[in-house]
């Protein structure tokens, strides 16, 4: 493989806090994405995200070092509450944000009509997984980049690339979900707080870990048991789509939706770059600075090496998920469907 066959690929990294943003920029991120401290972003957790003043400073910090900042404004305003989203857009635009990532048709329309020159990206939360759906957003709102759902194989990504007029951003690392993001109300159903409208899936205050006398652990979300672990077994965070359940035929618990794993596409990095992906996205705005630093640095080295025709040392990336279960998700084959 030669460097010439590859598109120049941007590394897009998460920042849950101003400190994480500086860490990501210093570790070599080409772009960093973050959100405000409210329901306008899909990681609306306590202690996370930016005040307007912090975002303004963060944009300056990144721009001085040649990096871009993207605003995740990728939830769905409930009727009567659209002002929070409009203010987020207004503020970010005034700070000189490089792009706004949207999912809601109404928010996309607001950005386009209010700020004709503001660059728009389509969030994975928009659930646009066909060329026609993506073309709709490009045609109506001049979307310039789509973040693809984590459900396409590399071959399918290549086909989508050839059939749409905008750039592609694809996930390479982080928490993976098979449910269509932006189209899931499982957590709402159990907690009453909406992932789509309130920006949080499986909020911590609805979680309980209940241990019995023999130290077996049941994890619960609201009133429902999500999983059960024998003493000493590593317990996962109880999100509904990663739990074990029963049917009439399956009397031992099984992962009805998906197994809890971390997405690690390191091995497929060259293929993704050849498929015409413009940007590689790392998930994890809820993660620590140390995590951001380690993951961003490793991917920076691998991407640069590939671009220059050197050995990308993919083993280093694979080691990032050591100890945790990892998967190449949908990207490699479609046999999981």
């Amino acid at each position: 493989m030669t460097a010439e066959s590859l598109t120049k690929t941007e590394l897009v990294c998460p920042a849950g806090t101003p400190a994480a943003l500086r860490t990501a920029v210093d570790a070599g991120a080409d772009a960093v994405y973050c959100g405000f401290q409210n329901a306008s972003n899909a990681r609306n957790f306590a202690g996370l995200n930016f005040t307007p003043a912090e975002l303004e400073k963060a944009v300056d910090y990144a721009h001085q070092r040649g990096a871009k900042v993207l605003l995740a404004c990728n939830t769905f305003p409930p009727g009567g509450s659209t002002d929070i989203w409009k203010t987020a857009v207004d503020d970010a635009h005034s700070f000189g944000i490089d792009a706004i990532i949207v999912a809601d048709v109404g928010v996309a329309n607001y950005v386009r009509e209010t700020y004709p020159d503001q660059r728009l990206h389509l969030s994975v939360q928009a659930g646009a997984s066909s060329p026609e759906a993506i073309r709709y957003f490009c045609r109506e709102f001049d979307v310039r980049r789509v973040v693809l759902p984590r459900i396409l194989t590399v071959a399918e990504i290549k086909k989508v690339h050839d059939a749409i007029p905008c750039e592609i951003e694809a996930f390479v690392f982080g928490n993976i979900g098979m449910m269509k993001e932006g189209r899931c109300a499982l957590s709402t159903y159990v907690t009453g707080e909406s992932t789509n409208m309130d920006g949080a899936c499986s909020p911590a205050h609805h979680i309980r870990y209940v241990e019995d006398d023999e130290r077996n652990l049941t994890t619960r979300l609201g009133r429902f048991a999500v999983d059960h672990f024998a003493a000493g077994e590593a317990a996962g965070y109880p999100t509904i789509c990663k739990g074990r359940y029963l049917t009439n035929d399956r009397t031992c618990g099984y992962y009805a939706f998906e197994e809890p794993r971390t997405l690690n596409l390191s091995a497929l990095l060259p293929d993704l770059m050849k498929a015409g992906v413009t940007a590689l996205k790392i998930e994890g705005r809820q993660r620590s600075r140390a995590y951001v630093k380690a993951v961003v640095s490793a991917f920076r080295h691998a991407v640069d090496a590939l671009m220059e025709g050197r050995d990308p040392k993919l083993a280093d990336l694979i080691a990032l998920t050591e100890g945790a279960k990892q998967t190449e998700g949908a990207f490699k084959t479609k046999t999981w469907r």
């Binding site: 098979m178 449910m179 269509k180 189209r183 709402t188 159903y189 049917t247 009805a256 939706f257 469907r337």
Partner: peptide, 13 residues
């Protein structure tokens, strides 16, 4: 209706 997926959960079961 609470969720949609690319994966068929009926087949998976």
């Amino acid at each position: 209706s609470l969720a949609l997926s690319a994966r068929c959960y009926h087949a998976r079961a």
